[in-house]
Structures are given as structure tokens and as C-alpha cells.
Design a binder for these strands. Structure first.
Length: 572
RNA sequence: GCGGAUAUGGUGAAGUGGUAUCACCUGAGGUUUCCAACCUCAUGUCGUGGGUUCAAUUCCCGCUAUCCGCACCA
């Protein structure tokens, strides 16, 4: 496999050149020297990206219980504190007092400490001064207190000094969690349901590498699927029995082993711990094939327990093989109720819950102490509300009067005449609970990169070592049809333009005209950017209204009447 | 972040202390009856800031970016 990668190295260089040359992908801000980790999509890449995103959204929306939402990228600090992004994502950095160089605190201590990664900021500072760690750059020893090295871009909301601290979101998921009440209402409380969001995410990587693979600003597409953990849903997993997935399970019981099996078996045999995760895995696999990823180059890898993010309980990555090796492109995680509960706790609301009907109604007979407000009110004044609440929690059968307790730091006594012992009947039909969340999170840029890599084919033609075909799938490709007049004279060019106008009337089709240079070159130009079909207008067209339709991948041509062509295109 | 290498039209490359060459691509014209043909012409380049110098794309230093290791990240 290593040999294969080396052989492909030049090929992948030629792909990068092509991407730049033809306007798919290029480093951003090149006029100003460029910025690592930031990329532009060009005239063709922009449309490619749009097509991938549309396909992604439709794939999920068509399930019927998924909606699309959108939320801001600028996120106030408390949100990210609640979600755990501030804290868990952090490493500490120390600044040299003398030369202002900044280093990761734990890295400075590597020589003198076994596991500096585990230290908190105070211990880090202590160790640094105890061992008189010198600055690698100026060799003096003296460090300012370590600060969290945050991988998020920070900003301030509001221009004045009192502005609120905020960050560019590191994932789109939080937007879906915060919109949960609205989504819950939309579906009128019927779980399971989900929401998707496509947008930019930001991570201030220390050193982005590997081209499009690690970006500082990237396109993410995330789906949050809210489920009742107690309800067993039948996903009909055996309807995918014709597909064998490559799985690399958590090596918790031994060495890493890749195995092949159907999604049904993987869930049955508990290789995949969560059925819903399994369902999303196979749905995601389907989507990848539709987008043009080579199915042989896809595998799922389960996160090892210590590798799992702070929120997840089970997590599988969809990895795609390309010139950078196996790259994680989708993460499918069961996040449990972590996020919703965290936000409920911090924001002090009760709104992030769902209602579950009991199978059988529960009749509950209770004997309670009902406070007599006309006595308690005047007697305890401001404290009366707290006292009433307390009384309602007591078991009336056990209580003896006068009853003493401490409320709000004060000893109080309840006399018998302050309460009324009542028998109440209540019927409980269900309960509130916090839904669990299964999240498939897609790195769109990484997927696009691999679509391009897997589509990129070089064949040899006479006099041509590298004839390039970008075998993009229909409707993913930026341009769907090209119309070429054999020559731009004798009215062929006008005929071609007439045909283009009729094609443009068909919705959603992007058609392109090219009339310069030889016909062979124009086919080559089209093949190179993945135009699936070329329509050629020749002299015969003027006589009998027929054109030739050339297929990109087979390079075969068929002559057909313009009417039939338009019919073909409208069904394309 | 550390170590090494690199930066020349859109792409891929050559070259020089006196402002740069080639191929492909692109555009115009000609030619051409279906797969990167040919002819003529044309457009377009020394990453960036500073230093040395009469003169720097070339030499030196800083910065930025890219590639390869290591580390980090997922």
C-alpha cells in the first residue's frame, strides 16, 4: 500500500494543479501571500460544493422527520462553556517573561514529568519554576502564568469595552441543541425527529497541514437526531444485506482487526453498540456512494474508549482512503443526553425535554399536607412560599405536629392548624425526559476532496500520456452538458446556441457552450472538468435536426433527434 | 511548534549581480467534416518586507506560504 501511495504522489500533484488551473480549489488570499488552512472554491468548485451540499440535505430531509435550520456562527461564551468546548478542548500555553515566546506548557515539561498532559494550570506553573525550565528560544528561565491555549477564534460582541466575549463556533451542533424547543414544537413532540445544519465551522489549528484536510475555516454539515432511549425502533437493517461494510472495531479486546459484515449483523452482534448509530452508518454509506466516493475505499472505525470526545458514548468514524491515507470524513456519535442536559443546567431552563406517555396510566393515591395559605401567609410573610413548597413534599402519614424544620437557615415550627391533611388522587400519564442524540457530523471539504480524488482518472491516448477524465457523478458535476458546434460557421454556431436556449429552459441544468479550437480539444476540456455529456452540432444537424450525444466515461457517441435529446435531458 | 527543502506567467519547468527563457494553457485570425492536429499573431511571471550594491529575481536577514519528517489535531 505504501508503494501504491508513492506511485500516486505525482498523480495527486497533477490533481492539485488541475484543481487550481480549472478553478475548483485553490489556497485563499494568495494575492496577499496566502493563509495556511484557508481555501477558496473557484468558479467550478463553488458549484460542486453547492451540489454536494444540496444532495446531502435532500438525502436527510427526504426521510420526512428531519428539518433544516440555520444559526449564527458567532457564539456567546457561556454556550460553549456549557457545551464543554471551553475546558475540554484546551491545552495550556506559557509565555516567556524575557522574549515573549509562547510554548505549550506540557511540552516544556516533557523531560521532567511523566505525564505533563494531565496537569492543571497551577501545577504546570509550579513544575515550570521548580525545575527552572529554560526558554527554548532565549535560554532564560522565567514564565508568566500559563493560559488556556484555545483552538477557537475569539471575538467580542459589541464595539465598546463592555462587549460580551464570544467565539466562532467550532461545530454547528450547538445551534441545533439551542433550537430544540422550536424543533420539538414543529414536530408536535413526536420523537424521533432531527435537524440538519450546513455551515462554516472554525478551529484555530496550530499548524494546518495536508491541504484541504485540515482547515481553519471549514464547511460542516451536521445532523442531530433526537430519540427516546427507551423506545426500540425497527430500522429494517436487513434491507441492506446486499452491502458489506468494512469495520474496524474498538480494539478493547485485542488487536485492531478489520472485518467485513452487513450492518444488520454488526448491530446484532453488538459490534455496533447502538442501533440508531448503525442505521445512520448505512444511510451515510449510501450517501457517500451517491456522491461518487469509491465504496472500496470506505471503512468505519470505532473510537477507542479513551479517544472518544468528552460527550460521546459510542462513536464511529467513516474514513475514506486517498492520497493522505485513511482520513476521517464523517463522525457518527451517540452523544447521549449530554448536550441537552448541559444546556438545561447552565441556562436553568426545563425546555429541552420530551414527553413520554406511559404504556399504562398510573393512578397514584397520595395523602398530602396542603398548606393553609391564610394562616401561613401572615405568619411567615416572605418565607411562606418556600415553606409551602416544602410542606407539599412531605408524607402526611409520617408527620407529627408541631413540626420543626430548618428553611433558608432559619428554624421554623409548623402548627397543626397551618395544614390540611388531604387525600388526592392523581393519574400520571407519562413523564418528561431528556432525549438522547445521535449525531452524524460531516466534513464537507474532506468529502469533496475525496470525491475529486476518486473521480480523477488518467488514461493514455495516442500521443498523450495523461488524458484526464474527472468522472464526477451526474448532478454533482458543476456543468451538466456542453454544446459544441463542429465549426463556428455555416450556421452551426447559431444552431448550437438555439439548442442551448432550449436546454436552459429545463430547470436545474447547467449547460455550457464552447466553440473554439478543434473538436477533440473541446471534448478533452470537458472531460477534464467532469462534464458528463457533450452535444455536438454538425452539418447533418442543419438537415435533419439530429445531434450527437457523447458520453464522457465511455467516449461513445449516439446520434439523436433534438426532441429526444431534450427529453433525455429533462429526465437526466 | 521543531528540523530539512522550496517559492520564477494560469500550469509545469529553465536561467542570470545589468528586469528573464521554454513547453503547455488562454485569446484573435487562418486552416480543418468528430476525440488535446497545424500555421500566424497576441496577453501574461521572479511570494513579501528590509539590507548590501551604481544596479538584486539572483547575495544576506526577517516574514508569509508550500512540501517532507517529528509533534499536535480528528
Amino acid at each position: 500500500m505504501l508503494k501504491l501511495m508513492n506511485a500516486d504522489e505525482n498523480k495527486s500533484k497533477r490533481l492539485v494543479s488541475l484543481m487550481k488551473k480549472r478553478g475548483f480549489i485553490q489556497p485563499a488570499f494568495e494575492l496577499y501571500g496566502g493563509v495556511a488552512g484557508l481555501y477558496d472554491y473557484g468558479p467550478l468548485g463553488g458549484r460542486l460544493r453547492r451540489n454536494v451540499i444540496s444532495k446531502w440535505i435532500n438525502h436527510w430531509i427526504s426521510l420526512g422527520n428531519i428539518v433544516e435550520i440555520d444559526s449564527p456562527t458567532i457564539t456567546p461564551e457561556p454556550v460553549l462553556k456549557a457545551s464543554g468546548h471551553i475546558g475540554a478542548f484546551n491545552d495550556y500555553a506559557s509565555e516567556c517573561k524575557f522574549c515573549s515566546s509562547i510554548y505549550r506548557s506540557d511540552h516544556l515539561l516533557e523531560e521532567v514529568h511523566n505525564n505533563p498532559d494531565s496537569l492543571d494550570n497551577l501545577s504546570l506553573d509550579e513544575e515550570l519554576s521548580k525545575h527552572k525550565i529554560p526558554c527554548p528560544s532565549c535560554k532564560k528561565s522565567g514564565w508568566l502564568p500559563s493560559e488556556p491555549l484555545n483552538l477557537m477564534f475569539s471575538t467580542t460582541i459589541g464595539a465598546s469595552k463592555g462587549g460580551r466575549r464570544a467565539y466562532m463556533r467550532p461545530e454547528t451542533a450547538q445551534g441545533m441543541f439551542l433550537q430544540y424547543p422550536s424543533i420539538y414544537r414543529h414536530f408536535r413532540g413526536k420523537l424521533p425527529f432531527g435537524a440538519v445544519q450546513v455551515g462554516k465551522g472554525y478551529r484555530n489549528e496550530i499548524s494546518p497541514r495536508q491541504g484541504m484536510i485540515r482547515l481553519r475555516e471549514f464547511n460542516m454539515a451536521e445532523l442531530e437526531y433526537f430519540i427516546d432511549p427507551q423506545k426500540d425502533i425497527d430500522y429494517n437493517l436487513n434491507s441492506w444485506d446486499h452491502i458489506e461494510l468494512k469495520l474496524v472495531p474498538d480494539p478493547i479486546n485485542g488487536e485492531i482487526k478489520e472485518l467485513k459484515c452487513t450492518i444488520y449483523d454488526a448491530v446484532e452482534n453488538k459490534i455496533i453498540r447502538d442501533k440508531t448509530v448503525g442505521w445512520f452508518m448505512i444511510k451515510t454509506f449510501e450517501l457517500m456512494i451517491e456522491l461518487g466516493i469509491n465504496s472500496d475505499l470506505i471503512r468505519f472505525r470505532q473510537h477507542e474508549t479513551d479517544e472518544m470526545a468528552h460527550y460521546a458514548t459510542d462513536c464511529w468514524d467513516l474514513e475514506i482512503f486517498g492520497s493522505y491515507g485513511w482520513i476521517e470524513c464523517v463522525g457518527i456519535a451517540n452523544r447521549g443526553c449530554y448536550d441537552l442536559e448541559a444546556h438545561q443546567k447552565v441556562s436553568k431552563t426545563n425546555d429541552l425535554k420530551a414527553w413520554r406517555d406511559y404504556e399504562n396510566e398510573l393512578e397514584i393515591d397520595k395523602i398530602i399536607c396542603s398548606p393553609v395559605q391564610s394562616i401561613i401567609g401572615p405568619h411567615f410573610k416572605g418565607k411562606s412560599k418556600l415553606i409551602s413548597n416544602h410542606l407539599e413534599t412531605l408524607d402526611a402519614l409520617e408527620i407529627k405536629f408541631p413540626y420543626s424544620t430548618t428553611i433558608d437557615g432559619e428554624e421554623i415550627t409548623i402548627e397543626e392548624n397551618m395544614v390540611e391533611i388531604k387525600e388526592v388522587k392523581s393519574i400520571e400519564r407519562g413523564e418528561w425526559f431528556t432525549p438522547h442524540v445521535v449525531e452524524p457530523a460531516f466534513g464537507i471539504d474532506r468529502i469533496i476532496w475525496h470525491i475529486l480524488e476518486h473521480s480523477y482518472t488518467e488514461i493514455s491516448k495516442e500521443n498523450d500520456d495523461y488524458y484526464t477524465i474527472l468522472a464526477l457523478k451526474n448532478k454533482i458535476c458543476p456543468i451538466d452538458f456542453s454544446v459544441y458546434p463542429l465549426f463556428e460557421k455555416d450556421g452551426l454556431d447559431e444552431m448550437a446556441k438555439k439548442i442551448i436556449f432550449s436546454i436552459r429552459d429545463i430547470k436545474g441544468i447547467n449547460v455550457n457552450y464552447d466553440g473554439t479550437k478543434s473538436i477533440g480539444r473541446r471534448y478533452a476540456r470537458g472531460d477534464e472538468i467532469g462534464v458528463p455529456y457533450a452535444i455536438t452540432v454538425d452539418h447533418q444537424t442543419l438537415e435533419d435536426n439530429t445531434v450527437t450525444l457523447r458520453e464522457r466515461d465511455s467516449q461513445e457517441q449516439k446520434r439523436m433527434h433534438i426532441e429526444d435529446l431534450l427529453k433525455f435531458i429533462s429526465q437526466y
